[in-house]
């Protein structure tokens, strides 16, 4: 199954290697990895999607925590969360075939962000299936897809945070009972 983790890691050289190396060591394939600055100074936020056995979530999270540069790890597989991906898609289109692409973009709530005589670029955000839907439809038309650049998934829990994230944000007054119970 696909496991999704959100990790806060120290913004230092080599941290990405350590995280990637851990997955390699565990013989687990990373499907998608995004990194960027977070709300915490000095910490980056990663969204890691990995394909591993159903039981692997606990061990991956525990192993991530064993890395010195990892501050927080949230396993959000199966919890209510918002997941988005950004894609830039360049398609072959000339003056005649453009309008069809414009219509498509409208339907998918995508934007045209660049226009050249022989091509145009589409920017689309959404869940994976929406992006893949657009690419599929584009492929079905005479407009050839020339390039696809996808950001990988970014995920955030809906509503309340785990106590760990609250703690990470500096909240000291943490209500009981919002901790996910570790299975054993």
């Amino acid at each position: 199954m696909l496991h999704t983790f959100v990790a806060y890691v120290e913004d230092k050289p080599g941290v990405l290697t350590r995280v990637a190396s851990l997955f390699r060591r565990l013989n687990i394939n990373i499907i998608s990895l995004t990194v960027g600055r977070s709300e915490r100074a000095g910490y980056s936020r990663m969204t890691i999607v990995a394909d591993a056995s159903d039981q692997a979530g606990h061990r991956i999270r525990a192993s991530l925590y064993k890395l010195e540069d990892v501050a927080e790890v949230d396993d959000i597989s199966g919890v209510s969360a918002v997941t988005r991906e950004l894609a830039l898609i360049k398609v072959a289109a000339n003056a005649e075939s453009r309008s069809g692409v414009f219509e498509l973009a409208e339907v998918f709530r995508a934007r045209i962000v660049d226009l050249a005589p022989e091509s145009l670029m589409i920017e689309i955000t959404g869940v994976e299936s929406k992006i893949e839907g657009l690419i599929q439809v584009l492929n079905e038309r005479e407009n050839r897809v020339l390039e696809v650049c996808r950001s990988g998934k970014m995920t955030m829990r809906r509503g309340h945070h785990t106590s760990r994230v609250l703690r990470a944000m500096g909240v000291t007054d943490i209500p009981d009972g919002i901790e996910p119970v570790d299975p054993d």
Binding site: H58, R59, A62, D184
Partner: peptide
């Protein structure tokens, strides 16, 4: 002491 060892090779009833 290492949570990553729990249920790694042998599933356990109480950790």
């Amino acid at each position: 002491i290492d949570p990553a060892e729990i249920n790694k090779n042998i599933p356990v009833d109480v950790a």
